[in-house]
């Protein structure tokens, strides 16, 4: 039983990591129907930014809490700037192009950003400082769940709820939903569609950056390539849960994380990917739009 609980929590942590990144994929897809393959790189840039800021601040001798907050803020702002710019450079000019064009543009952006960081920073793995200290009172259950795991779980839950509130109850959320439903109509009723899309990219990028910081602090290392694998898994999670749906992304992340964890625990870690992707195929066979996705009729 203990073993089951341990595996469950390890799956939950992994799942919330996927979910945090998946939220960005699903938001962008919900608004403009584009799979933003550069999202994994935004996550990586967020991790790098927080690495630089945290290193500088810890040299200056600031308290840990201040470092976390400032590094997180800096990462969110810097990554949002990247997200905003990417949208303006790579996707906006292609908004009326065939669907395949922005997709290729996204893949190109992803490769560009990876190599940009490789050249501008380093190809080596860098040690990421442990930003989240081990709490004393958690010591008895340290073998089951650590402080970082709890922080990651909470951040995911809070982000999901905040996003839902943003979309359901604010003016910006209303504009987002309108844009998602029909861009032309939204524009006719006076919504600045371009700004709504930019906002979506900014929010998604900020979330990815904070995720990047937490996860880097969890595993303790970063390099220019971390965004790729995390991005692919998060994308899988988003599709599994129903791309375009925010609770779906989180659910998909958890299902993927738990499947991988239990597959490793009870079968073999050699097969964790096999199980994860078999599950994806099975779910898509029975629910082609994903678990919580709405199956809509393609507008031609």
């Amino acid at each position: 039983m203990d073993y089951f609980v341990e595996l469950f929590f390890s799956g939950l942590t992994r799942g919330s990591i996927y979910a945090l990144i998946a939220l960005g994929y699903t938001m962008v897809y919900g608004i403009i129907g584009l799979i933003n393959f550069a999202h994994g790189e935004i996550y990586m840039i967020g991790a790098f930014t927080s690495f630089v800021v945290a290193s500088v601040l810890s040299i200056m001798g600031l308290p840990l809490l201040a470092i976390i907050v400032l590094a997180g803020l800096a990462a969110a702002i810097w990554a949002s700037a990247y997200g905003y710019t990417i949208e303006k450079i790579a996707y906006k000019p292609l908004r009326n192009a065939p669907r395949l064009s922005p997709l290729i543009s996204a893949i190109g952006m992803s490769i560009f950003l990876q190599n940009y960081v490789l050249l501008a920073q380093t190809s080596n793995f860098l040690p990421f400082p442990e930003l989240i200290p081990d709490f004393e009172f958690l010591e008895p259950i340290a073998h089951i769940i650590g402080t970082t795991d709890i922080v990651i779980l909470l951040t995911t839950a809070v982000s999901m709820i905040a996003l839902l509130i943003l979309i359901k109850f604010t003016r910006m959320g209303k504009a987002m939903r309108a844009t998602a439903q029909d861009k032309t109509m939204a524009r006719l009723v006076g919504i600045n569609v371009d700004r709504v899309i930019s906002n979506t990219f900014i929010v998604g990028s900020a979330l990815a950056a904070i995720g990047g910081m937490l996860i880097a602090s969890h595993v303790g290392q970063i390099n220019f390539y971390i965004g790729f694998i995390a991005g692919i898994k998060a994308f899988t999670a988003a599709v599994l849960g129903g791309i375009g749906s925010i609770p779906g992304a989180v659910l998909g992340g958890f299902i993927l994380g738990l499947t991988e964890s239990f597959a490793t625990g009870y079968v073999s870690s050699d097969y964790e990917d096999v199980f994860a992707f078999s599950l994806l195929v099975l779910i898509l066979l029975f629910k082609p739009a994903g678990l919580l996705g709405k199956s809509s009729i393609e507008k031609v």
Partner: peptide, 17 residues
């Protein structure tokens, strides 16, 4: 005797095993 996937975000499941 097991193999892990390089580059995965987290290895806590195999560590528990």
């Amino acid at each position: 005797f097991e193999g892990v996937t390089p580059g995965a975000v987290d290895y806590s499941a195999i560590v528990r095993k």
